[in-house]
Amino acid sequence: MLPTVEPEPSVRALPLTLQPFVDTPNPRGLGAQTFKVGGTPSWAQDPEYYTCACGADLEYLCQVPEGMEFAVHPGQPEQPYSVGADTYGLFLGNEVYLLACPSHCDPAAVWPVNQN
């Protein structure tokens, strides 16, 4: 399945600005608990490991921290229990990690991991 070209009707796409930073693991070996691409994952529970259908071990790509709010288009209904009327909480407020195939065997060779 390839990504859709249709815009998301509720959640607003915002510019993503990546800035370099040193993700120094803490004494438990966990990285910073923030939205980040690369670095060291800040596993909320035990680390999880998966294998791609091609046989390669999936590698940590990025993470979305727990409780992160996402901007919505004006006029969308308010999400119950959200922080604000103009944001939605996704992933049930859990931390989400994306693991990807280092062999790039397929553009969709990405596996989401949800932890709380």
Rank of each mutant, 00 (worst) to 15 (best):
Q19I: 15
Q19S: 15
F21E: 12
V22F: 11
V22E: 14
D23Y: 08
P27L: 09
R28N: 13
G29Q: 05
L30F: 08
L30Y: 08
L30W: 06
A32D: 13
A32N: 12
Q33D: 12
G38W: 04
G39M: 08
T40Y: 08
P41E: 00
P41H: 02
S42D: 08
Q45R: 13
E48G: 08
T51G: 05
C52K: 00
G55A: 05
L61P: 05
C62K: 03
C62T: 02
V64F: 01
P65F: 01
P65S: 01
G67K: 03
E69V: 09
F70H: 09
A71I: 08
P74W: 06
G75W: 01
G75C: 02
P77W: 04
Y81W: 15
V83S: 15
G84H: 12
Y88T: 02
Y88G: 06
L90P: 06
L90E: 01
F91R: 03
F91E: 04
L92N: 15
L92I: 13
G93S: 09
G93C: 07
G93N: 03
P102D: 06
D106L: 03
D106W: 02
D106S: 10
A108G: 02
A109V: 00
V110C: 06
W111A: 06
W111T: 09
P112F: 02
N114P: 05
